[in-house]
């Protein structure tokens, strides 16, 4: 196809970001769920603080339900999944009905998981599987490499963002940054070179200035 408007590029970028957010936060949620079972019931507070999202939860049980499944909570996993869907829906002609269907199925699985109050993680795992299937499908059926690269750039930016918030290791940060650089140059997106270079420098420092790194990261792509 090869013809992408600014609006569509924005949708592809945010499809990448939201789908990655769902994927990564789901895994973090699984870990938190496990820790809260028998180690630290208040672990969710640290989680909220690390991600810089408001701790609106009464207790761990409330967190388990509302952080994952509350559509009124804009920080919840399901809300982010719906945002991924919103962006995917308007680029059906770029990513194909097949790829879009996996996001739709991820939503259905999340709804099933919500209904399973005692053990929501099994159906949630299927939701995450569908996100992976969507990415795989896009890789398989989308002929235009630029379309794929915009989505992948969005995913790397989101992954790096979350990793910075969660104070990830330098090794992990540099690995994701290197992938981000790879897709940035291949996505043809306009970008702020100064912010990009500054972030590269920050990641080389002995002590990483995480807030500054996050600030630079947000400024890289100009859409």
């Amino acid at each position: 196809m090869g013809i992408i408007s600014l609006e569509k590029a924005d949708n592809l970028y945010w499809l990448g970001r939201y789908s990655e957010r769902v994927y990564t936060t789901s895994h973090r949620y699984f870990t938190s769920f496990d820790i809260m079972l028998d180690q630290n019931e208040e672990y969710y507070m640290r989680y909220c603080e690390a991600l810089n999202i408001p701790d609106i939860y009464v207790d761990s049980k409330d967190f388990v339900q509302r952080y994952a499944f509350d559509t009124e909570n804009t920080d919840s996993i399901i809300s982010n999944l719906y945002r991924a869907y919103d962006n995917a829906l308007v680029v059906r002609d770029y990513i194909s009905s097949e790829s879009l269907a996996y996001i739709q199925m991820a939503i259905y699985e999340m709804k099933k998981a919500k209904a399973n109050i005692d053990a929501p993680l099994i159906a949630m795992q299927r939701s995450v599987d569908n996100i992976l299937a969507c990415w795989g499908c896009i890789d398989d059926v989308v002929y235009d490499v630029v379309i794929r690269n915009i989505i992948k750039y969005g995913r790397r930016q989101e992954r790096l963002d979350l990793l910075l918030r969660l104070r990830g290791s330098r090794t992990d940060l540099k690995r994701i940054f290197s992938e981000l650089e790879f897709y940035l140059y291949r996505s043809n997106l306009k970008f702020n070179r100064c912010a990009f270079l500054e972030l590269a420098l920050i990641l080389e420092q002995d002590i990483i200035d995480y807030p500054k790194a996050l600030d630079c990261l947000e400024k890289i792509v100009v859409l």
Binding site: I3, I4, S5, E7, L89, D93, S96, L223
Partner: peptide, 29 residues
């Protein structure tokens, strides 16, 4: 969206199109 996909056409909103010099254009990002 389905017909755009199936006909290999571009699905556009009004924001994606612009008129210049008597012609209509789709503006790339």
């Amino acid at each position: 969206s389905y017909l755009a996909e199936q006909t290999n056409s571009i699905l556009a909103t009004g924001n994606d199109l612009v008129v210049e010099g008597d012609y209509l254009y789709y503006v790339e990002y």
